[in-house]
Nucleic acid binder design. Structure first.
Lengths: 356, 356
DNA sequence: CCCGAGCATGCAGTCGTTTGCAAGGATCGG
DNA sequence: CCGATCCTTGCAAACGACTGCATGCTCGGG
């Protein structure tokens, strides 16, 4: 029996409980196996196992499983200053776009032994900064960021300091880090093609906030696509946020003038807001006005009417961002990579030929 | 200048970066303030601050902020064997029910300085167990569990070992730990009242899985309510899971006999499945069959038709569970508490008087 | 004017693991 | 049969913060 630190007096601990067996430590394993803790450490550690004689490795591992030994990640982290943990920053988990992304991240990182810390920033740069700092203090090995702004000092500073990170969905200008996003430009082009093909000429865009890349890229893509069809590209109103309320307000503004025959919304939430505004003005979709969303959020096909939308592979976005981060962390990656995942226009009941 | 461990040779580090200033340590602060590390520790630590002369406290704190010192939570955890981290187990983050709960948990725990680790179990007890163990290895201070089964050995074992934990939404029988849930029984009673009030007599229940408390409690409540109205309580079919696919299958089975005039679904996803089944059989809702859901998931009001559902305060469920856990962790709580949050029937377009 | 109480601070060990260095033994060639 | 080499293992010092104990100081009462 080992004679190290005796347990504190347990008299006052909940008397009903059996004295909780303290988690065995590396020393316990070493003692039981008759080796030095250092040897046990090397035997149990994948990377250093080759330094130890196979028979010893075997013995140590047996004892370890017999005792139910698990390494203490805290102690290991303290020594190695890595934590096998990554931080994920999202604007808001209750926005249906993000759960699939986070799930993809967790699945992919979990498979490599990492755990995930998530934080919600509510699109507030100050909260992003404080969450970022808090996670760094917890020694996260890297970040996956879904909250980046087009011009984002926090991202630039972190990149310059060499913090391992990957952007997902939202990108930052002139930032030299790996990133994954949907192919927004193509998605918007297909959308406009589709509407023009139905006979629409008067097409408006309810753009998302221009300080995030999705808003700005989709707006630019909208203008380009309209120009290529020889149509006016100035029927644009910018929403304050990616929310149904903001989409509602922006669409109302749009409808204050002459109503377009079709609306390209910056994302699905904005499209829902458009639905509300149309109803409020007594216009029906798709008879009076067609509406297209973006992202193809879960359950969006069950709206009334079912929303035509651009499907973005959200789960895969998460998985791919995790892969890129793993590449960075393992040092395999020399230069940052930028991955654009293909998107697909899903035509449903919210688009139809214009009236008359 | 301190003369401790010299930095490793930086020659091979990315040459473009300024030599990254290593995070200052407690020793750095102590040295700069001209005190012993122990004193600095006490000065910076809320609980022990009173042991240090106020002037010294002041000086140390100034130096600390000047140097940008932040405690290293890893080192602290190793010593204190607490991590200021809690683990959250959910079945699946992409199920719309859970993001609001998780968000509530993160907001409430974050305000108390805790960070949150989440894991998805996909309703698999083995995954739950391994995630549980992994989180324990990471020294989480406690758990909030949304994956509990009615009979759950893992929960019992953890409770017996005295692991601080709280159940949310799904409960376990005969388990002596704090828990929060919606008042399911009342919700179902109100639902049946509503349908009977509309004139329905032939009411069926598409129950959720009976191995989780929500499925079993709602079924029992359905039976009780039907009996109180003097109606048959045996029009019940049990779904394999809380998913639209399972709801679809279960409802088809139900419709294979004589169609009821109203369906009480175990939750909103099952109700969506009922929608699908009704459509497949050429029945319309609410004209032929009324449908009621449970939970009032985000965006459920936008279905076709808008779903009548029982609103459960999901975010508050999360907040309350976090509070209960904080009580346990602070030792303020003597006996486990069970909190039932009030629910409210939201009547929408999916319920109407029966035909004829 | 001296001694004890009490406050403020320093000392050093500890949490559990990793890892550079050194030492012991075995092996092999000359 | 001996010394050089390699392989295996042990030793001990970290990582950064916390904390029981010891110490030195100040202050007050007799």
């Amino acid at each position: 029996m080992t004679a190290r630190t005796p347990n504190p007096p347990t008299g006052l601990r909940a008397a009903t409980l059996p004295p909780v067996a303290p988690r065995p430590t590396l020393r316990d394993v070493a003692t039981a196996a008759g080796v030095h803790p250092a040897t046990a450490s090397r035997a149990l550690n994948e990377a250093t196992r080759s330094l130890v004689r196979p028979a010893t490795v075997e013995r140590v591992r047996e004892v370890a499983t017999a005792l139910g030994y698990q390494v203490n990640p805290i102690a290991r982290s303290l020594k190695t200053s890595r934590s096998e943990t990554v931080g994920v920053l999202v604007p808001d988990l209750t926005n249906p776009l993000f759960p699939p992304i986070v799930r993809g991240i967790e699945d992919a990182l979990g498979a490599s032994g990492y755990t995930v810390l998530t934080a919600n920033t509510d699109n507030d740069p100050a909260r992003a900064a404080s969450n970022f700092a808090a996670m760094q203090a917890r020694q996260v090995d890297g970040f996956i960021v879904a909250t980046a702004r087009l011009d984002d000092p926090l991202m630039h500073e972190a990149a310059e300091r060499g913090v391992p990170m990957v952007l997902v969905n939202r990108l930052t200008e002139h930032l030299d880090v790996s990133a994954v996003a949907g192919d927004d430009a193509t998605g918007i082009a297909r959308t406009v093609d589709h509407l023009v093909g139905l006979g629409h000429r008067d097409i408006a865009h309810v753009a998302g906030p221009l300080n995030v890349s999705t808003g700005s890229v989709r707006l630019r893509a909208f203008r380009t696509a309209m120009q290529q069809h020889g149509l006016p590209d100035d029927r644009v109103v910018v929403a304050e946020a990616y929310s149904d309320a903001a989409g509602h307000a922006a669409t109302l503004e749009l409808l204050d003038g002459r109503a377009p025959t079709a609306i390209v919304a910056g994302n699905d939430l904005l499209a829902i807001g458009s639905y509300d505004a149309l109803e409020e003005r007594g216009l029906s979709c798709p008879e009076d006005v067609s509406v297209v969303g973006f992202n193809d959020m879960p359950f969006i096909s069950r709206l009334r009417p079912p929303l035509t939308s651009v499907r973005v592979p959200q789960y895969d976005l998460g998985v791919e961002s995790a892969r890129l981060l793993l590449d960075v962390l393992s040092g395999r990656t020399a230069t940052p990579r930028m991955v654009l995942l293909p998107v697909q226009l899903i035509v449903r009941g919210s688009t139809a030929p214009p009236r008359g």
